[in-house]
């Protein structure tokens, strides 16, 4: 890793890594799957869900990346998976079992159909 030796260094480092960080570039065509992996998410089975997602993505050759992330704040609905696509509002899935995780890849990512029954409707106003 490089040492950042000025504010300019930090800024140029930021523009370099933007493509590889887990944040979505507007035109990348890449889909991000955020899995809530704080203590409660893991206790509810988030690691198993992540493993199924990874397997399914590989199997179906989808251009998607999994981000293990922190707490979404909706502990009651753990494990949770968020599907982020550029230019579209995020879709949050709650109570995700390994079976639901499989369907998320197959139906949502491949066929483009949202699994309405498993969607949590959240409206969070960000910073």
């Amino acid at each position: 890793m490089p040492k950042l030796l000025s504010w300019e260094d930090l800024k140029s480092y930021r523009s370099e890594i933007k493509g590889e960080s887990s944040l979505l570039e507007p035109d990348s065509g890449r889909v991000l799957l955020a899995v809530g992996e704080a203590t409660c998410g893991i206790a509810a089975g988030a690691k198993e869900v992540e493993a199924v997602l990874a397997k399914e993505i590989a199997k179906r050759g989808v251009n998607a990346q999994i981000i293990p992330t922190g707490c979404f704040g909706y502990c009651y609905a753990e494990p949770m998976v968020e599907v982020r696509k550029a230019g579209e509002p995020s879709v949050y899935y709650g109570y995700v079992t390994p079976e639901v995780a499989k369907s998320i890849v197959k139906r949502h990512l491949v066929e483009g159909r949202i699994l309405e029954d498993n969607v949590l409707h959240l409206e969070v106003e960000a910073e």
Binding site: C40, C75, Y76
Partner: peptide
């Protein structure tokens, strides 16, 4: 409190959390 209140009641066996 292990901070997993969303899964209450919680039991820990060694480091594993049951919700």
């Amino acid at each position: 409190c292990v901070g997993a209140c969303g899964l209450a009641p919680v039991v820990m066996v060694n480091d594993k959390v049951y919700g």
